[in-house]
Design a protein around this nucleic acid. Structure first.
Length: 228
DNA sequence: CCAGACGTTGTT
DNA sequence: GTCTGG
DNA sequence: CCAGACGTTGTT
DNA sequence: GTCTGG
């Protein structure tokens, strides 16, 4: 895989502090295990330059489609080709977003078994994936806003686990990315020396599990906050 | 022109 | 909607 | 990404 | 094996 699960535990106030979006502070429950098809917040930029937080479906639903269709894996888009692929080209030019995250999961396969790892910044701070979003509208007037996460080749830390990783946008390029004026040169692997990775329990495999156990280092005791 | 696709990862 | 293939 | 289903008729 | 659901 490359990026099929992530976490966003930070409170909405922390998301606002980093991304400077306008409007009311939304209610964001801590999320330990966000999976494709689920709703999650993204940051977009309006034409007047103001940033907005919008909750969207993870899994790109093209405007021309009949609706969500999981026969296609549209929760990731390859950085190497995203500017030329039909399904993403217009969004790459006009509808970029930043995805607030504080960790993501990758599964390492060895001797036939897969072990999940959690990857985060060394200080566990909030950061951003590069994404694209889309607005789909049904004939009955219903609509779906959705997003995809862009992936690239793994850096030297993550390549021990897997050969792909999500594109992480450093703070200093957030505005350039959202402004849609940059080319694909921002879509590169993030600095491995700023990141850490550790194994977690296969508990995270089940997308219905969404609690602190998901991010707990494998083999260690259950964190206090989920003991009753 | 119309028809048909539009995606990624991992495995073979 | 937009691009590619025929 | 992984987990889990993979079906129909008829009855509530 | 392949598709759907989360």
């Amino acid at each position: 895989m490359m990026c099929g699960r992530y976490s966003l535990v930070a409170p909405a106030e922390a998301v606002r502090a980093l991304f400077k979006f306008e409007g009311a502070t939304p209610n964001l429950a801590p999320r330990y295990n966000i999976a494709p098809t689920q709703a999650a917040p993204v940051i977009i930029q309006r034409k007047d330059g103001e940033r907005e937080l919008v909750v969207m479906r993870w899994g790109f639903v093209p405007a021309w489609s009949k609706g969500p269709d999981n026969r296609y894996s549209m929760f990731n888009a390859r950085a190497e080709t995203v500017h030329e692929k039909q399904a993403y080209r217009v969004a790459f030019e006009k509808r970029r977003c930043l995805v607030p995250v504080d960790g993501f999961y990758e599964w390492r396969e060895s001797s036939g078994t897969k072990m999940p790892y959690r990857i985060s910044l060394i200080d566990e701070s909030l950061f951003a994936f590069a994404g694209l979003w889309e607005h789909w509208e049904g004939s009955d007037g219903s609509f779906i806003e959705s997003f995809t996460i862009i992936t690239t080749r793994a850096n030297s830390l993550i390549s021990r686990i897997h050969d792909r990783m999500p594109v992480i946008m450093p703070l200093e390029v957030h505005a350039e990315w959202l402004g849609c004026c940059s080319a694909a040169e921002l879509l590169i692997p993030y600095s491995p020396e700023k990141m850490k990775a550790y194994p977690v329990d296969a508990y995270v495999n089940d997308a219905r599990h969404d609690d602190p156990m998901c991010i707990s280092p494998a083999g260690e005791s259950v964190p206090d906050e989920i003991m009753n």
